[in-house]
C-alpha cells in the first residue's frame, strides 16, 4: 500500500511482535482514515485493537511498517517532539485516568498547564469545554464525587482541550451502564461533527451497530473487514 495523500491517518504494512516474535499482536495492517471520519474498531479482547491505539499515540513502535499521521511518520518521531504530537491527539480510556486529588476544572486545566498555555487561555477554554461535555456545574467536584459517565466526560473534556485533530477512545464505555454509554457515544458523535476524527475501539459491537459509521473488525492481529 502506497502513501495516500488524501488520508489523514495511514497504517502501511504495520506489524507488531512481542517477546522476540513469539507473539504476533498485529500482522501486516493496512488502513487509511480520511478527514472527519468516525471509525469504529471492533474485535474481541486481545485481538489487537489496543496495540493499534498504542502505536497511534506512539506509546509503542511497530516491529515493521509505517504509520503516517497528517503527513508525518510517527514511528520516526523524535522523543522531544512526542509531547507536541500527543497534544494533537486526544486519548480517552476505559478507566478514565483522572487525577483523583484534582477537581474537574483542575484535571482539564492540567493538560493546558503542561503545554505552557497562559492562565488567560486556561480560564477561558476550560469552562467552554466543560459546558460542551455538560459538566459546567461539576467544575469544583473531585472525580470520586462523580458518576462513571461524568468521569468519562471529564476525560473527554481533557482530551479535547487542546483542540486535537484526532480523538482516540479505547473502550471508553467499558465501565459504564447503558444510559451513560449512550451519552458518551452521543458526545463522541457530536465531537466528530466539528471535524475531529474519532477512532473508537470497543469489544461490544452492540453499542455501535446502529450508528451507521465505518466499522473495522480486528481478529487475531488482522483486519477482517475494513469497510
Amino acid at each position: 500500500m502506497a502513501v495516500d495523500p488524501g488520508a489523514i491517518i495511514q497504517f502501511i504494512s504495520v506489524s507488531k511482535e512481542y517477546s522476540k516474535g513469539r507473539v504476533k499482536a498485529l500482522n501486516n495492517i493496512n488502513l487509511s482514515i480520511d478527514k472527519g471520519e468516525f471509525v469504529i474498531l471492533v474485535g474481541p479482547s486481545g485481538a489487537g485493537k489496543s496495540t493499534m491505539i498504542k502505536l497511534l499515540i506512539r506509546e509503542e513502535i511497530p516491529t515493521s511498517g509505517k504509520i503516517i499521521v497528517a503527513g508525518r511518520d510517527v514511528t520516526r518521531l523524535k522523543e522531544r517532539d512526542l509531547p507536541y504530537y500527543r497534544r494533537n491527539v486526544g486519548t480517552i480510556f476505559q478507566d478514565f485516568k483522572l487525577l483523583p486529588n484534582k477537581t474537574v476544572f483542575e484535571n482539564v486545566a492540567y493538560a493546558l498547564e503542561l503545554s505552557d498555555e497562559p492562565d488567560v487561555i486556561i480560564k477561558e477554554r476550560v469552562p467552554r469545554i466543560l459546558s460542551l461535555v455538560g459538566l459546567s456545574k461539576r467544575s469544583d467536584n473531585y472525580p470520586a464525587e462523580l458518576s462513571g459517565g461524568e468521569r468519562q466526560r471529564v476525560s473527554i473534556a481533557r482530551a479535547l482541550v487542546h483542540n486535537p485533530k484526532l480523538l482516540i477512545a479505547d473502550e471508553p464505555t467499558g465501565n459504564l451502564d447503558s444510559k451513560n454509554t449512550a451519552e458518551v457515544i452521543d458526545l463522541l458523535l457530536r465531537i466528530n461533527k466539528t471535524g475531529t476524527i474519532v477512532i473508537l475501539a470497543t469489544h461490544d459491537e452492540n453499542i455501535v451497530r446502529n450508528l451507521g459509521k465505518r466499522i473495522i473488525t480486528v481478529i487475531n492481529g488482522r483486519l477482517v473487514s475494513a469497510a
Binding site: I57, R80, L82, P83, Y84, Y85, R86, R87, T91, K97, L98, L99, Y110, A111, L114, S115, R158, H162
Partner: peptide, 9 residues
C-alpha cells in the same frame, strides 16, 4: 497521565 496529555520532559 502527564505523558498522555502531552507533558514535556
Amino acid at each position: 497521565i502527564m505523558r498522555l496529555v502531552g507533558a514535556g520532559q
